[in-house]
């Protein structure tokens, strides 16, 4: 019995992320290594939160995807900033309202899919316009300022340890636990593999998917809440970057687009990869056009070299 070393698909993005970190450090000196990683962790944390939500939806079965995450993120940020009006004392109510907005948005997405039999890609895209226009009516072009405490929390790093990314790692651990050890997690992965088989095994498929979409909306809202604190307020275009990124980190992280296989830890590798690559290409002073091209080429390369998990 020869045991060949086979790396799990999701480890590849960690490896590439590490390579980029080393390349950047080699270029700009060892002194910058710590700050490069710190920045990647902080920015990456937002991608991880929104990506974890997207993962739940994608794992729920072939065709399931949430394209409304950027506008849910924006809307939740606007609503919560409007509730808090910059007062630290309103922090908890603001968070709760944000999460409720997200959960409701996710539920609306799924109800459109279920009741109107729309394909998820259409239903969530349509809702995303609605959510975006709510945000526009609520705040207009103005940036709503976050409470000082929220901004302080997102960048809080006692003794150089960043607290917010650490909390997000806790979220990842929770997601791993939910997928492996809870009834809902198992039911989600079963529904994602085969809807008829899951149904015949007693799984209430639509209820499981409703929770997945609501969870995705909630996590998009949480991203919006934190991002508004981090970046100095809610702005209409704050979610734009996260549409493709939320999907890309999930797929690069080892979650199957066909559903039924989810990987929460892998999202971190992919998120770090995206952010470290941006840093690296900035450090090398590569112009924007080339940068985007390299980004695309690298994504294709990683997915191409990852062994396909269909050997069984």
């Amino acid at each position: 019995m020869t045991r060949r070393l086979v790396l799990a698909p999701w480890t590849y993005s960690f490896i590439v992320a590490l390579a980029m970190w080393i390349a950047t450090t080699a270029y700009s000196g060892i002194g910058s290594a710590g700050s490069t990683l710190a920045a990647a962790l902080a920015f990456g944390a937002f991608s991880v939160v929104i990506g974890t939500g997207q993962m739940l939806v994608i794992a729920a079965g072939s065709g399931n995807i949430d394209l409304s995450v950027p506008s849910v993120l924006t809307l939740a940020a606007y609503v919560s900033m409007a509730v808090m009006t910059g007062h630290d004392g309103m922090l908890v109510p603001g968070l709760v309202v944000a999460l409720l907005v997200g959960a409701a948005a996710g539920a609306l997405n799924f109800l459109a899919i279920l009741l109107l039999r729309l394909p998820p890609i259409i239903a969530t895209l349509a809702w995303s316009f609605v959510f975006q226009s709510f945000a526009f009516n609520l705040g207009g072009e103005a940036t709503l300022k976050p409470p000082a405490l929220l901004s302080a929390f997102t960048v809080w790093a006692p003794g150089g340890i960043e607290i917010m990314p650490l909390c997000v790692m806790g979220l990842t651990a929770a997601a791993v636990f939910v997928l492996r050890s809870t009834l809902w997690g198992r039911s989600l992965l079963a529904s994602g593999q085969s809807e008829p088989a899951a149904r015949l095994a007693g799984v209430r498929v639509w209820r499981v998917r409703l929770i997945a979409y609501a969870g995705c909306g909630t996590l998009a809202a949480l991203t919006g809440f934190l991002l508004a604190g981090f970046s100095g307020g809610a702005a209409l275009n704050m979610g734009d970057a996260y549409l493709l990124e939320s999907i890309a980190v999930v797929v690069l992280g080892g979650t199957s687009v066909a559903g039924g296989r989810a990987n929460a830890v892998g999202i971190w590798g992919a998120a770090l990869f995206f952010n470290l690559m941006a840093t690296m290409l900035n450090t090398f002073r590569i112009e924007a056009g080339i940068r985007l091209m390299l980004t695309g080429a690298l994504i294709i390369l990683i997915i191409a070299i990852v062994p396909k998990p269909r050997a069984a």
Binding site: T182, R186, Q193, S194, R261
Partner: peptide
């Protein structure tokens, strides 16, 4: 199409229908 969960092991396939009775508060 209606029976097997192709990505799972024997154990995962076998226990799915029994998980509700093996769980408390949703924890298996």
């Amino acid at each position: 199409t209606e029976g097997v969960f192709a990505l799972w092991s024997i154990a995962d396939n076998l226990t799915l229908r029994s998980l509700p009775s093996l769980s408390r508060l949703g924890l298996i």
